[in-house]
Design a protein around this nucleic acid. Structure first.
Lengths: 169, 169
DNA sequence: CTTTTATTAGCACAGTTGTATTATAAAAAT
DNA sequence: ATTTTTATAATACAACTGTGCTAATAAAAG
């Protein structure tokens, strides 16, 4: 949250303090808006992949999961924003529950639909695998953020694809 | 880092500002010390498990990995500290490399020794599995931190044990 | 054309922060 | 015994922060 001061944001936007305050009465409003913006952008990208029928189901599902990883600069920035804000709001316990990710729910849904398409290995514990996959995704994202030189885009792509391959048959 | 102000820490310690400053000239020194303290405590706990021969190797290795997860209140607090400080120092790029986890290296080492004891399934790509396991560990830890009600100690224990079982034969 | 509303800019205020300085007491060293 | 080092406290300072307030200006509505 280092530069996310009201003054810093106003300067970046080319506005005065008062002008910015005309649109966002408090800092929290401003940060919430930024967080929602990131969420909407990511959701839109995923919806686009979801709707694109030129890929086979398995490929499409893989691409969706890959979309959750910071494999390029743009997504890395979004991820940093999301991450910083999550930690920030985590510490103002008030009304944070409503702000939750939804990624876990999305993972479960995707695994379910993969299962209905008969893509998954039969012996899997789906609840367990959902939790593991969710952990792999955020773990890789976190490591790409903290150790960008060692854990880069190509590598996390490979690792996630490898993990998904272990779920499909 | 909400309460980690110099004044806050001095008050918590029952010292005046000047007294605290006698031991830690700057805030960064203080935070670095706290970070190192957490690291030493965790390292000591792991060393203790490592040296305890009452467990079979597989069980021992499992216990070590479980030690990296915030399965109780104490470890959760340590993890929050570690986590907040990591993010904090990440943003002061200066001399952060030296402060790195070492968890990834530890995971690789443990997998190697498990392999030498013939505990691992033969067809595994060890580099890949180390990265995945590392991601699962930190992913679970992160989720336990952000969603403590859903992702609690027993559950992450179960999930990690399940994942380790998929590596052993 | 007048009036109302939306927008912008600037400043002030009160609080917090890290750090520097100075004074004083206690302990240790010489 | 005196000098030096260690420890503690209190205060000061400059910078930064979120937010409130006021006035001016542009745009829109009546």
């Amino acid at each position: 949250m280092e530069g996310a001061t009201v003054r810093g944001i106003a300067k970046e936007a080319g506005l005065s303090l008062g002008a910015l305050r005309h649109y966002f009465a408090t800092q929290d409003e401003l940060l919430m808006y930024a967080m929602q913006l990131v969420k909407e952008r990511a959701t839109a990208r995923i919806a686009e992949i979801s709707a694109n029928e030129k890929w086979a189901p398995k490929e499409r599902i893989t691409k969706i999961f890959l979309e959750l990883l910071p494999t390029n600069q743009e997504k890395m920035v979004e991820m940093e924003v999301w991450f910083a804000f999550t930690v920030y709001f985590r510490h103002k316990k008030d009304g944070f529950d409503a702000q939750h990710d939804g990624i876990y729910a999305a993972v479960r849904k995707l695994l379910d639909s993969a299962d209905q398409l008969n893509l998954l290995r039969k012996e899997l514990d789906k609840e367990m695998e959902a939790e593991k996959l969710y952990a792999v995704i955020d773990g890789l994202a976190l490591h790409a953020y903290l150790e960008p030189q060692r854990v880069n885009g190509e590598w996390i792509t490979k690792v996630l694809e490898h993990h998904l391959a272990s779920l499909f048959h």
